[in-house]
């Protein structure tokens, strides 16, 4: 028996928004520790890793590990039926071929349940090593979304360069060039509004704007986002999900031929 009850159901709705543009289907791996999902987009350029810890749920029960293959388009349709204020419970029997979503209104006067067919997914899991990155940049998530949107107008690719002085985002195309420089915040009232750079060595990498824009669908999950870069390895874009976990996106860089 698997059962996970989330008081703040809107978080699951936001998680779905953060996943569905990149992934058509994914396996939700449930264990004692919580729910994890790891999947690459169709073209294997990016990888999404979601972690929702058991302690973040109001109620969590997982008698045996299970992997639930879900069509995210279908799951998204179902979660659209939940109100932002609803409490959401995900339930499945051991070895079941369906999963049930239960939505309770805050005062319990409306309860809906939706049963969805599970899929058999034979997905590869990738081992992602713990890495000390040469640069980490924390910035407001809305600022990052704005930068990705603005620079996408100029070209398909964006160069992210990080030095001690700050971080520079650049894109070049037919109409010209756009450069956005962010300096480390000297003084901020609110932690989440800060730009904080930690740098061991300068890094400059090129990434496809299309994927970066897809990652920013997670903006509503967190006020800030962390970018981690090292030479010639995938960029990590991490959004924390309140007290429950995180979604991380890995994006393979573009490399000179």
């Amino acid at each position: 028996m698997f059962e996970a009850r989330l008081l703040q159901g809107s978080l699951l709705k936001k998680v779905m928004e953060a996943l569905k543009e990149l992934l058509n289907e994914a396996a939700w791996d449930c264990s004692d520790a919580g729910i994890q999902l790891q999947a690459m987009d169709n073209s294997h350029v990016s990888l999404v890793s979601l972690n929702l810890r058991a302690e973040g749920f109001d109620k969590y029960r997982c008698d045996r590990n299970l992997s639930m293959g879900m069509n995210l388009g279908s799951m998204s349709k179902i979660l659209k039926c939940a109100s932002n204020e609803d409490i959401i419970t995900i339930k499945a029997q051991d070895n079941a071929d369906t999963v049930t979503f239960v939505f309770e209104s805050p005062d319990q006067d409306k309860v809906s349940d939706y049963e969805m067919k599970l899929m058999n997914l034979d997905q590869e899991h990738l081992g992602i090593p713990e890495t000390d990155y040469a640069c980490t940049i924390r910035l407001p998530s809305s600022e990052f979304a704005r930068i990705c949107r603005d620079l996408s107008q100029f070209g398909e690719s964006m160069v992210i360069s990080c030095t001690k002085e700050g971080v520079r985002f650049s894109a070049t195309g037919d109409i010209g060039t756009g450069n956005i420089k962010l300096a480390q915040s000297a003084k901020v009232d609110k932690e989440e509004e800060a730009v904080v750079i930690e740098m061991q060595e300068p890094v400059s990498l090129t990434f496809a704007c299309r994927y970066l824009n897809s990652f920013t669908k997670a903006t509503s999950l967190s006020k800030s986002v962390q970018l981690s870069m090292s030479p010639e390895v995938p960029l990590v874009v991490e959004y924390k999900i309140e007290d429950i976990g995180h979604v991380r996106y890995y994006l393979a860089p573009k490399i000179e031929d």
Binding site: S43, S157, Y250, A252, P253, K254, I255
Partner: peptide, 14 residues
């Protein structure tokens, strides 16, 4: 022009 690399190039398949 720069070529797009792929994720499996960097991470080991378990």
């Amino acid at each position: 022009a720069a070529a797009q690399s792929r994720i499996p190039h960097y991470f080991e398949i378990l």
